[in-house]
Amino acid sequence: MVKPPAISARSVSFYYGEFQALRDINLEIAKDEITALIGPSGCGKSTFLKLLNRMNDFVPGARLSGEIIIGGVNVYGPQADPVEIRRKVGMVFQKPNPFPKSIYDNICYGPRLVGVKKKSALDEVVEKALKAAALWDDVKDKLNKSAFELSGGQQQRVCIARALALEPDILLMDEPTSALDPIATAKVEEWIKQSKLSIVIVTHNMQQAARISHGTAFFYMGELIEFAPTLTLFTSPKESRTENYITGRFG
């Protein structure tokens, strides 16, 4: 049985002003799986990730060609609404970035935007999201405390819960553990592995990609070099550049 892809990118090229950051990317990302994007820094993997929920719209001089289809709709089509897209495609950032509000208000941010006001409904959303992010037991007694009082790993899971509260179809994660210590990293990874979501994760850590992902895409100098099931890519890469990278010869 073949599921339809969660995301398909068709000949996507992207420019920052004159600089071409991505060259003709074609990629189909599977539904309900974890896909890792790896490559040396500056290879375009984060840029590609941010294209998926139009977070590059804020970059001055950004231009794009090609199309990205999510849920049957071209994200950059004339009818597409970036606000709607970002609600369906959640994102977790490199550095935990909770709002300077309570944990509760952090989680409720998205639902309140779309007009959910009833306390009982919000309570339910918060509990569900925090449980989904495996944080409920840690924080259920201090929901009204500032999110800044939590540890780095807990803050990052608040950010995950905050994204999950909108029940996104896809979750994008931009090096979500690079600012965390090993124990917190393990917790976040554990969460990723057991989640049933479609997740696209950028990581500079190849072990991490190998540990958690089903498929891995290797980016280099703005090009997609190779995309394969993770085990295949790490054990028998087709391209020599992939092999050089994963064996540590550059990058």
């Binding site: 609404d81 709607e84 639902p111 779309v114 007009g115 959910v116 006001k117 959303v125 909108l166 029940e167």
Partner: peptide, 11 residues
């Protein structure tokens, strides 16, 4: 699906 404002009112 979360309920609330219509997207149009929000826009």
């Amino acid at each position: 699906m979360l309920l609330g404002y219509s997207p149009k009112a929000r826009k």
